[in-house]
Simulated scan of single mutants.
Amino acid sequence: MTKRPIASLAILALALPAAGSAAMPGAQSWEIGPVIRGKNYSQGMPAAPYPTRGGGWAFDFPAPDAAAGHVHYVTFDPGSLHGKSRLVVRYRIDAAPGTRFVPQQYPDRTATVALYMQRRGDSWTAKGAYQYYRWYAPVATMNALAPGEAEMIVRLDDPDWSSVMADRASTNRAALAAALDDIGRIGLVFGSAGGRGHGVFATRPARFTLLSFEIR
Rank of each mutant, 00 (worst) to 15 (best):
G121T: 12
T141F: 12
T125S: 09
A169D: 10
W124L: 14
A175N: 09
K127G: 15
T141V: 12
T125C: 03
T141W: 12
A150C: 01
S123Q: 08
Y136K: 06
T125Y: 00
A169L: 05
G148L: 05
A179V: 13
Y133E: 12
Y130W: 09
A178M: 02
Q118I: 09
T171Q: 12
L145A: 01
D182A: 00
P159M: 03
E151V: 02
G184K: 01
D157H: 05
V164L: 08
G121H: 06
P159Y: 09
D160C: 03
I153Y: 12
Q131A: 10
D122K: 07
L156Y: 10
R155A: 13
L176H: 01
S163M: 08
M117H: 10
A174Q: 12
A137R: 01
P159D: 10
S123E: 15
M117L: 13
A140R: 09
Q118T: 06
M152I: 13
A175E: 15
A146P: 00
M142T: 11
A177Q: 10
D157C: 05
N143A: 11
E149R: 00
D158P: 01
A174D: 11
A177T: 07
W124P: 12
S123A: 13
A126R: 05
Y136T: 11
A169T: 08
R173F: 12
T171K: 13
V164P: 04
D122P: 08
A169I: 09
M117C: 13
A140Y: 14
P147S: 08
A137I: 06
R168T: 01
T141G: 07
A140C: 11
P147I: 05
T141P: 03
I153E: 15
W124F: 15
D160V: 00
A146L: 08
R155S: 12
A178T: 09
S123P: 11
A126E: 10
M165A: 00
L115Y: 14
A150T: 08
Y130D: 10
G184W: 02
D158T: 13
G148D: 02
G128L: 10
R119T: 14
A137M: 08
R155N: 15
I153V: 09
D157P: 00
M152E: 15
I183M: 03
A146Y: 12
W161G: 01
W135H: 05
L156C: 03
S170Y: 15
A146F: 04
Y132I: 05
I183F: 06
D160M: 10
A174F: 03
S123R: 11
A126C: 07
E151R: 04
G128C: 06
R120I: 09
R119F: 12
K127F: 08
V154I: 06
P138I: 02
G128M: 10
A178K: 04
M152Y: 11
D157F: 02
D167P: 01
M117I: 12
N143H: 06
N172C: 07
R168Y: 04
A179D: 12
W124G: 14
A166D: 15
R173Q: 15
